[in-house]
Simulated scan of single mutants.
Amino acid sequence: MLKFFRKIRRGLIADKKVGNYMLYAIGEIVLVVIGILIALAIDNANEDSIKHKKQQVYLIGLKKEFETSQNKLKTLISVNKKSYEDSKTIIGFMQDPDRSPNEEELSNLLYNALAFDISYNPNNSLLEEMINSGSLKDLSNPELRVLLTNWISNLDDISKQEAMLDHERDQIINMFRTNENSIKTIYDLTGVSGDLGLPVATEQLSNLALLQSTEFENNLLMFILTSITTETMHYAPLMQSMDEILATIEGEIEE
C-alpha cells in the first residue's frame, strides 16, 4: 500500500500537481498513523490477555491456599474448644466436692486441656510471594486486594492473642514442675508413656489435690477465659473473613 502511494507521489511531483500531491501525502500519513494505532491495539490486546491469564492463575492458586487454611482453622477451633470445655469440666468438679473424678479421669481431662498448642499456621506462600513481588496489583478487583491485605494484618493480631493463650497454659503447666504434682501420672494414665516408650510406674503420685488448690483454679479460669476469647473474638471473625475472601475469589474465576 505504501509503495502504491509513493508511486502516485512521484508521478504527481513529476507532473507538478502540488495540490493533489498534498492530498496524497496526507493520505500516506494517515495510513501510517492507522498502522501504528493498529499495532498498538494488538500489543495492548496481547498484554491484556497475558495479564488476564496471569490473574486467573493467581486466583486459582489463592483459592486452593485459602481452602486449605480454612480447613486448618476449623480443626484448630475444634481443638481449642475441646481444651476449654474439658477445663470447664475440671472447674465443675472443683465446685462440687461430691462429684470428684478418679485419677484416670482427671488425667485425661488435664491432658486434653493442656497438651495441645493452639497456633494457627495458614498456607500463605502464594499470597506472600505476590505481596513481596508487587504482583498483588495484578488482581483487577480492588475489593479483593483490600481483603487480602487486611488478612495479613489480622494474622498478626491472631499471633499476639495465641501468645497470651500460651502464657496462660504455661502458668498451669508450671504447677506440674514441682514435687506436689506429677506429669508422669498424666502420661501413665493417658497412655502417653507407652507411646513414648517410657516405663509405667507401679504407683502414681496423685494430682487430685489440685482440685483443692485456689492457685490452680485461678490459673485454669484465666486459661478458659483466654481460650474462649481467642475463639469468639479472633478465630470466628477470621473464619468470616476467609468466607468473604473465598466468595470474592470464586466470583473472579472464569469457568
Rank of each mutant, 00 (worst) to 15 (best):
P97E: 11
I91K: 00
R99Q: 13
D48V: 04
Q55W: 02
L40T: 08
T68N: 14
T75S: 00
M94N: 13
L37K: 00
Q56N: 11
E103V: 01
K72Y: 03
P101E: 14
H52L: 14
I91V: 06
I60P: 01
S78K: 02
N102P: 05
S78A: 04
R99L: 15
K64S: 15
V79S: 06
A41I: 01
A45T: 10
S100Y: 07
I29R: 12
Q56I: 09
V32P: 01
Y84R: 02
A39K: 02
K54I: 08
D86T: 13
E85T: 07
I29Q: 06
F93L: 06
G27T: 13
N46A: 10
I60Q: 09
F93Q: 11
V57D: 15
V33K: 02
I90Q: 04
Q95Y: 01
E65S: 05
E85I: 06
E65F: 06
S83E: 10
N71K: 12
E67S: 07
A41T: 05
G35T: 07
K53R: 12
K64W: 11
I36C: 09
P101W: 14
S100D: 14
S69E: 08
K88D: 07
Q95N: 10
K51W: 01
E103L: 08
D86F: 10
N46R: 07
P101T: 12
T68Q: 12
I90C: 02
E47A: 00
E67R: 07
D96V: 06
K53D: 15
G35R: 09
I34R: 08
I42V: 14
I26M: 09
